[in-house]
């Protein structure tokens, strides 16, 4: 007697399919990694071509972006400026409003309100960005023109920043709320037990305890603002220029890429190649934001058991 038979064939478990499934799952995981690698390779290849004609120095320090109209000039700074204006402007709206929303949902709202508001916020996040752009063009800009005493262009940076800000509020509020919701109730009780008010519990105890998740949501939202394309193209226009007035049109890096993408520049021309150089710049910016987000998460994580 050799005891109970526990071999696979006898018990009918797993076997060949089990190991096959493993490869299928691996292939799916590998797909997104390969895609990322492919994107980087394509961006680098196109950029190398571009930098044969235009020096990296000229590209990164030039203050004139005029790729299609003579005399051509390839200084990327006006586009970076446009992107920064949109990003900073939208952050000024989305970070305070999003954080306050998260505090409300996590610390103040009763479960009923919360179960209604949270899904609505998530719907807001699901609206196509082109719709936001159209909303900016047809509603926000006319309102700015009506309210402000100054001249407001049909395309202007302010409308772009506002609409992108509104667009990324759900990202900030939803992720921050998740982080705050994960703070153990024992901590809240500790503060309430000392005679803290709800506001003090929220700001002194819950926010610091959830800081890693909140900061990570900020970075992800900013990275989204940097990469946002359709809404800003529609709202802020296609005029690459250094301007401190938010009421004038600008052009972001993404908007430029749309412009070239739909224009009739021929494949292989310098205008076409500039697409890759701008794309690479954009990629480096959002990539470093995402790395920063990961770093913040690990740096500020507090351990609770």
């Amino acid at each position: 007697m050799s005891g109970t038979d526990l071999t696979r064939s006898a018990t009918g478990v797993g076997g060949r399919t089990d190991s096959l499934v493993r490869y299928v799952f691996f292939a799916c995981a590998a797909l997104s990694v390969l895609t990322t690698v492919g994107i980087i390779v394509v961006l680098l290849e196109g950029s190398v071509e571009f930098f044969r004609t235009v020096s990296v120095f000229e590209f990164l320090t030039g203050t004139e972006w005029s790729p299609l109209i003579e005399p051509v000039s390839y200084g990327v700074l006006p586009l970076v400026w446009g992107t920064l204006v949109i990003t900073v402007g939208s952050a000024l709206i989305a970070l305070p409003v999003g954080t306050a929303t998260a505090i409300y949902l996590s610390e103040y709202a009763n479960p009923g309100v919360r179960s209604v508001v949270k899904p609505i916020l998530e719907v807001l996040a699901g609206i196509p960005t082109i719709v936001y752009g159209f909303f900016a063009l047809s509603f926000i800009t006319p309102q700015l023109q009506r309210v402000l005493p100054w001249e407001v262009g049909t395309f202007n940076a302010a409308a772009g920043a506002i609409v992108v800000g509104v667009m990324i509020i759900p990202m900030v509020s939803s992720l921050s709320e998740d982080a705050m919701h994960a703070v153990p109730d024992e901590l809240r009780e500790g503060a309430y037990g000392l005679g803290a008010t709800r506001y003090e519990v929220s700001t002194d105890v819950v926010l610091p305890a959830a800081v890693s998740g909140i900061l990570a949501s900020y970075v992800l939202a900013l990275s989204r603002a940097i990469g946002e394309t359709m809404a800003v193209t529609l709202a802020a226009g296609m005029a690459p220029q250094f301007t401190t007035s938010p009421l004038e049109p600008i052009q972001t890096m993404t908007a430029y890429m749309v412009q070239i993408g739909i224009s009739d520049v021929s494949v292989g021309s310098i205008g076409y190649q500039s697409l890759f150089a701008v794309g690479l710049t954009l990629f480096v910016m959002t990539f470093s934001m995402n790395v920063a987000s990961i770093w913040i998460r690990s740096r500020y994580r507090e351990e609770y058991r």
Binding site: E186, G190, G193, L194, G195, P208
Partner: peptide, 27 residues
């Protein structure tokens, strides 16, 4: 809130705030 300032509480699970020792006591 006023009541709890006169009646302190210690809980089952130690629940220090994610702050320094000093700030915990000073809170």
């Amino acid at each position: 809130v006023a009541l709890r300032r006169k009646v302190g509480m210690v809980f089952q699970k130690p629940n220090p705030f994610p702050k320094s020792i000093y700030d915990n006591v000073a809170y």
